[in-house]
């Protein structure tokens, strides 16, 4: 029986496209804090401001994705000797256009707790479980961003 492998390859190629464009956008579903930027500075300036804001808010820099206009911090780790008390946070800053064509900047802080029962002070043994996003820290992050962007003009 003869069949062509071309359709199969095509399907495989199409399904692998999202993986090529970077990590999945799981952060889209989180709780964001946002603010309209008017007038909006150049994108490069905004991305640079993201980096300063992230550092000033206490996060180590992680991945800067200029194509998605997103900066993701490294995990800010706070291990504790008791189960469920250890925490880690990751900040995300993003700039995009809303439906009205305005430029908006958004912040989000993902929060997770360490649920491992064993060595709670060993980050290698940690077992992280997602919690509610940290809205307070997200607002603080956005205020740091505002301090960078509003005072630069």
């Amino acid at each position: 029986m003869r069949f062509s492998v071309l359709p199969l390859l095509l399907v495989l190629f199409v399904t692998s496209l999202p993986a090529c464009s970077g990590p999945t956008l799981e952060d889209e579903t989180g709780r964001w804090t946002e603010r309209v930027l008017e007038p909006a500075p150049p994108m490069r300036d905004i991305m640079d401001a993201f980096e300063w804001s992230m550092v000033n808010a206490g996060f180590a820099l992680g991945e800067r994705d200029d194509s998605r206009h997103t900066l993701t911090s490294a995990w800010d780790l706070q291990l504790q000797p008791f189960r469920n008390k250890g925490r880690r946070w990751q900040g995300i800053l993003r700039v995009e256009k809303n439906a009205e064509g305005e430029t908006i900047v958004k912040s989000r802080v993902i929060q997770e707790k360490n649920v491992t029962q064993d060595d709670t002070l060993d980050s290698g043994e940690a077992d992280w479980e997602r919690m509610e996003d940290d809205m307070i820290r997200s607002r603080i992050l956005l205020q740091h961003l505002v301090s960078q962007l509003h005072l630069a003009g």
Binding site: N56, I136, R139, I140, Q143, H144, V146, S147, L151
Partner: peptide, 18 residues
Amino acid sequence: YLLALLLVRHRKLRLERV
């Protein structure tokens, strides 16, 4: 508010929380 942001930016004030 703007002065507060300026001082936070230059680390003369610490933004503890909102």
